[in-house]
Design a protein around this nucleic acid. Structure first.
Lengths: 340, 340
DNA sequence: ATGAAAGCGCTAACAT
DNA sequence: ATGTTAGCGCTTTCAT
């Protein structure tokens, strides 16, 4: 196993100083065409690869970003991740991924590691509403862009969808179809997406004079929670004519519960949800959804972060809010259940 | 913005030498309980976080692994990624992810970056059958574990599923149901999984004396390819009684093509596939599949890699081959199409 | 059980 | 257009 060549080996072979090799590598400063050629030949001959640890230690730049999501296994976050990766790669950055599973402790653990690794910036889907992680990054001068969720009372760069309007349009759609007893099954209290979707839901009911019929079920953003809360919601009499799941996993839990209870969708109960599944995964899309442009969110957030750490944008925090797209499908047919 | 404290600041505050702080941080060497306490107090007080770039530069260890897959957006790879992440995290490593999109050029680009980043090891789903990337890592003394696919003629640590037997059992299943004109729609030539599944298919046909009816369609591991080749396969007369898609995307392409051609599954044409979709994404699983334990593959590969780089295992290359699980569902009913 | 000296590989700052 | 010097923050090696 022969020694791995370093910048000095290259310099010696090319008959120049190490700094000249550095300049060639980074296309910085002046180098004559001729010496550049000589250096490149030496690099080629030795199979030299610059050591980014040393570079980062000296230059305070690692060209590494981190993406902290709750669970990469959720197609919504997978797509965000892919958007991040593509944008980062195009800008010369690599990405470290972390899954917090909605756990504050895991989030803190990862954030600590990321500071140790001297990442240039962090893309964060906050697992909780407290700002400890964010503050810690801040105190280490690492810029952050929040994705998907905001942190109450905390000003930060943010890329998210318009959850409130997305929810509003889904409920409007149901109301137009004749539904009135519409239950919402959502995630935890205190998570902005969970709350904003409730707000949009309430506003739509209110606009239709149905505020008295509001039924809100808080839980977690999981299939199990969606399933259990559906059972609970259907236990109330008169039962809801429609259900709204505020993320993809909850919606699937809802559909599974209704199937297990032999309740036909949409004839007996209509269902709408947030987040679409990628077309590559579904043969016949069935669920009416407010789709979020996840890939684009990842891209935009990455570009914002890189602009931020290059000081290419105004010091004020940027908030990029993308619209959701209402996709009407079979799960939300006209109301068939008579009023009681 | 105050200065970020380093090991010297901590040492000064604790009244010890920097090396003692290092020993406390790494629980290496001897330190008296008392000085350890003093050092830890100083660390706490200053909010000191060790700089892993400097550590890595000196110690030649970065505690970073890389996972190179073709597309993290494919649930099979997403699940592998999650398995890798969890195992890596438990072992004290972080993970850099890269998507090659089956492109040899992208693979090489990423591998180069990973060498620059001095990752301790690489988990690789090779995008091609050539061993350039692998050799390059090797020449930089970076250990590799291949996942899912082998590289023909190249000896390496490897974690994969038994594709040949998985395919065999799917085809046996179809034959038992009365099918005989079974077409296989697979990925590229030269990719081991693509080829191994064809081998299992051919062996099953052969064992049943049906080798003359073999129809193999090579393409890519995408939905589009699955769709197009299905159209092609159905154009042949007599048309196949069953179709076998060798990955999840191909199978979905097959089902979409059949739907668009108004061919009912399984009554007119049965369909089986490789890879299962996570239960969290599907309400009513429909497709009969050979499921691969993707999460476990990621875990096992990571553990193998870490053992390898700690020299904890014999020098001989390890090959871990996991079984697939046959899951029978509605897409593979008994043959209804009469022989012609 | 603790420390001093040296150096990992690179680039910022300052010459020339 | 190129080079010299110094040092990023840590750990290895060798002392004591």
């Amino acid at each position: 196993m022969k020694k791995i060549p370093n910048i000095n080996d290259v310099a010696k072979r090319a008959g120049v100083a190490p700094i000249t090799v550095s300049r060639v590598n980074n296309s910085s400063g002046y180098t004559s065409e001729e010496t550049r050629q000589r250096v490149e030949t030496a690099i080629e001959a030795l199979g030299y690869v610059p050591n980014t640890l040393a570079r980062g230690l000296r230059s305070k730049r690692t060209n590494t970003l981190a993406l902290v999501v709750t669970d990469i296994t959720n197609p919504f976050f997978t797509l965000i991740a892919r958007g991040v990766e593509d944008a980062a790669s195009a800008l010369g950055f690599t990405v470290i991924y972390c899954n917090t599973d909605e756990s504050e402790a895991k989030e803190e653990k990862y954030i600590n590691i990321l500071v140790q690794k001297q990442v240039d910036g962090v893309l964060l889907v906050p697992a909780c509403s407290n700002s400890k992680s964010v503050n810690f990054l801040h105190s280490n001068s690492i810029p952050i862009v929040l994705i998907d969720r905001s942190i109450p009372g905390y000003q930060a760069d943010l890329v998210r969808c318009d959850s409130e309007n997305g929810a509003y349009s889904l409920i409007r759609h149901l109301i137009k179809l004749g539904h009135d007893r519409i239950a919402i099954i959502t995630g935890p209290r205190g998570i902005s997406t969970s709350e904003d979707r409730v707000s949009g839901y309430l506003r739509a009911l209110s606009d239709a004079g149905l505020e008295k019929l509001a039924r809100v079920y808080y839980g977690t953003f999981t299939q199990t929670s969606g399933y259990e809360l559906t059972v609970k919601a259907l236990d109330v009499i008169p039962s809801p004519t429609a259900l709204f799941g505020t993320n993809n996993f909850i919606s699937i839990g809802i559909l599974k519960a209704l199937r297990d209870m032999d309740i036909s969708v949409p004839d007996e109960t209509a269902v709408v949800g947030f987040d679409d599944l990628p077309t590559s995964m579904v043969v016949d899309p069935f669920l009416t959804v407010a789709a979020q442009p996840a890939y684009e969110m990842g891209q935009k957030a990455t570009e914002l972060l890189v602009n931020r750490l290059n000081n290419k944008i105004p010091v004020e925090y940027q908030e990029i809010i993308l619209p959701t797209v209402l996709i009407e499908r079979k799960s939300s047919g006209p109301r068939r259940v008579p009023s009681q």
